[in-house]
Nucleic acid binder design. Structure first.
Lengths: 241, 241
DNA sequence: CGATAAATTGAGGACAATCAAAGAGTGTGG
DNA sequence: CCACACTCTTTGATTGTCCTCAATTTATCG
């Protein structure tokens, strides 16, 4: 086991960087202490899997740092990434026996892991936590439905542009002050071209071609293949459809 | 106002056909009486709109009978149906100021409507209701992610086949005893071809051609354009990818 | 520096979209 | 009861976007 037992450090949560953004935000000191006791920290390396699609739902977790992908696959192996999980987000499927999608770290990732059954019990006994989780789940549902619009109705150009806009927003942790107008914003993509393709329902070649096109049109710059500079956000927005 | 004030009929909920399947299932008599007071019944005709995308989130509702579609649209008017709402399902966006998608009745529909703010307050004060709502939202999130796999990775044939399988399941209200093996099942589609296309991210022509193909292949029969008979469920499943 | 993986670019083809028209179903009024 | 208008669905012909296959370039790492 590479996890560190949080019970040995009673005040660990209080030092947590995402403490006031995650679902634990509204808990009082006593409740946090209880959560402490059933959770443990775990580090994931890029490519390391936290949840396996179709397997028993043993774990749930909060993401402290890093990014994970959630994905499902068809019987013959085509993968679709159905969600990206950023710091302060929740991963896993409470109140169900099987995990409906796989979760894999894209970057070095720190998660705060709970046995699902422990978490379920805790949630049922602590309505404020359940309320936070409900708000988060509703937001995630909204997000996945917007994603359905992208997958169902947008062309390749609109998909890639939308992806860049969404990703820059998520990486900034929801802050609206950056890149709102004027100053260029820089995005460090946590995904490879293949993974972006699996997010957008496209192929790697099509994604690459769209990046090239945007670069030629002066809408983005690419210091490296994973670093995107957006000089003018509105020009990118204009291509999201 | 075409709504009937439920407060005039204290025991209305107890006669409700979806009472033990909807989010109100776990409430005790006292709680149900309170819900009664803030809700009212409303009838919707096919095509009638309950929620407007982007507008203030004033209402939430339980569906008693009938089917609604949830949809979003791009700036230039392309519509994507992002959800179908069946009896005992919940519609609307609690705890948010704006409705992220439109909701429109596909059939004659009965809903149990609440002012969103009344509902929010009630939910916060009644953890059992919030828990039910959470479970429902988690299930809906799982469903929308499976839908993303369809939109992102499946071809036209797989999409239409998956749609028929899913729809027959939902129309039977989750019962597994019908059509499990052997006996043919019959589906009354609540959607037009255009609406099916907007669900599947296809065009009306492509959907129509797939129906024709399935008919020619003996996988379905079509007594009328909205009535689908599936003689052998496994043959249809084989085409879902 | 060489080996391996990731990303880009090019050429050709396939599947679904688009454009166009005919057929089936529904309702209204003569 | 039938003619007519209207909508919905089906079918056909053609186009276009993205996928597939293939090769090259660039990046990464021992």
């Amino acid at each position: 086991m590479d996890g560190i037992d949080l019970a040995q450090r009673p005040n660990f949560c209080q030092a947590c960087t995402i403490r006031n953004r995650a679902i634990c935000a509204d808990l009082d000191d006593e409740e946090v202490a209880l959560l402490n006791r059933i959770g443990r920290k775990r580090h994931l390396q890029p490519g390391e899997q936290l949840l396996w699609e179709g397997e028993a739902a043993i774990l749930v977790a909060n993401v402290v740092s890093g990014v994970l992908k959630l994905s499902t696959a068809t019987a013959d192996g085509r993968e679709q990434i159905v969600g990206l999980v950023y710091p302060s987000d929740f991963v896993g499927r409470p109140f169900a026996e099987t995990t409906p999608y796989g979760a894999e770290a894209l970057t070095d990732t720190e998660v705060c892991v709970f046995q699902r059954k422990d978490f379920d019990r805790f949630a049922l006994e602590h309505p404020r936590l359940e309320h936070k989780l409900l708000e988060r789940t509703l937001t995630e549902l909204d997000r996945s439905r917007r994603w359905m619009l992208l997958l169902g109705k947008m062309n390749a150009q609109e998909r890639v542009a939308s992806f860049l806009v969404e990703t820059s927003g998520r990486l900034q942790g929801g802050r609206k002050d950056i890149g709102a107008s004027g100053e260029p914003s820089q995005i460090e993509l946590p995904l490879s071209r293949q993974q972006i393709a699996n997010v957008l329902g496209l192929t790697i070649e099509t994604v690459s071609r769209q990046f090239t096109q945007f670069r030629k049109d002066g809408i983005i710059e690419m210091p490296s293949s994973r670093t995107i500079v957006v000089p003018d956000r509105s020009a990118l927005l204009a291509r999201t459809g």
